[in-house]
């Protein structure tokens, strides 16, 4: 059974044509993998579909813009995986 990170990494590899081996849990989607905001919409779409959730991108963006959170919290992939796990858990609660 694949982990949340594996699923997200596979989505990124396929969506952005990035070699799967270069996508690590500590990779930052923007700073390390060079994913821009438009490409991230495709990733968000695929993640939303794969996990049956709706990632609150607007809320996350607002938190970053207001200095309440760093981009690491949402764009380092191991952290993104944690956020997705939280959303999946909240959906089932």
């Amino acid at each position: 059974m694949s982990t949340t990170f594996d699923t997200i990494a596979n989505i990124i590899a396929e969506t952005c044509d990035i070699p799967r081996d270069s996508i690590k849990p500590e990779s930052h989607a923007i700073n390390d993998l060079g994913i821009d905001s438009l490409d991230f919409l495709d990733i968000a779409f695929a993640i939303d579909k794969a996990f049956g959730i709706k990632m609150p991108l607007e809320q996350w963006t607002q938190e970053v813009n207001e200095g309440k959170a760093t981009t690491d919290r949402y764009f380092v992939l191991k952290n993104l995986s944690d956020r997705v796990d939280e959303l999946v858990a909240a959906k089932g609660a």
């Binding site: 968000a44 779409f45 939303d48």
Partner: peptide, 9 residues
């Protein structure tokens, strides 16, 4: 096809 947060497909 999909209503996301701040985007739609």
């Amino acid at each position: 096809s999909h209503s996301g947060s701040g985007y739609a497909m």
